[in-house]
Amino acid sequence: MSTTSAGLEFHDVTVAYGRRPVLWNVDLTVPGACLFGIIGPNGAGKSTLLKAALGLVPLAGGEVRILGAPLEQVRGRVGYVPQRESVDWDFPVTVTDVVLMGTYARLGWLRRPGPRERSLAAECLDRVGLADVADRQIGRLSGGQQQRVFLARALAQQADVYFLDEPMAGVDARSQERIFRVLSDLRAEGRLVVIVHHDLRSVAEWFDAVALIDMRLVATGPVAEVLTPENLRRTYAGRLDVLDEIGRAVAEGGRTP
């Protein structure tokens, strides 16, 4: 796997919903081949940062580069695991059907998944420990299993950079362990894994580096250097009222008091 020195770069990225900025001036460089955590309180803009990298929300300013290139040039090398609640799990498809979706973009128009894609899907399901539920309807899985189906779909994309949005939310301990193992294997294969994560306890055990986010980048770097009491206090201590107020003023086209 070829990865350039920088896997993911945000250059002065600002994201706004409507006109209101929710993520301010993020300047962040993530090296290649590591487990990278995006950590922060609820509403800090963690998922928004991920979606900005994937082009799912428009940038109000700044630039994102993945593997040294703009997103459009490397889309095929990027895998995405959305939040589990973002889809309807009653949708009439089987586990294998969902994993095969990971091969669709590569297949292109008019081509159907064939034996090669099927064996790839089976292999990915095996990697996440779901080989025995391959033919089950997705609604009949536990939360942890559903999350692993999403991971298997991303594996089937055979990407070099993976983005995961809260993959451990509502997931049992066994699934969590399994997911972290698969992600560590990806890193060992030279891939970059970026994870939006909320559980501080597991950060030191699994992650190489993190970014602490609360509407702006608070700190980034290796886990041991970043997770200091001072940085955590700055991240979790409470909202920066000034950003909230300015954001509202920008949205309304007015002026702050």
Partner: peptide
């Protein structure tokens, strides 16, 4: 099934 993932792909 999953418009966001489809778009990202």
């Amino acid at each position: 099934f999953d418009p966001a993932a489809a778009r990202a792909a």
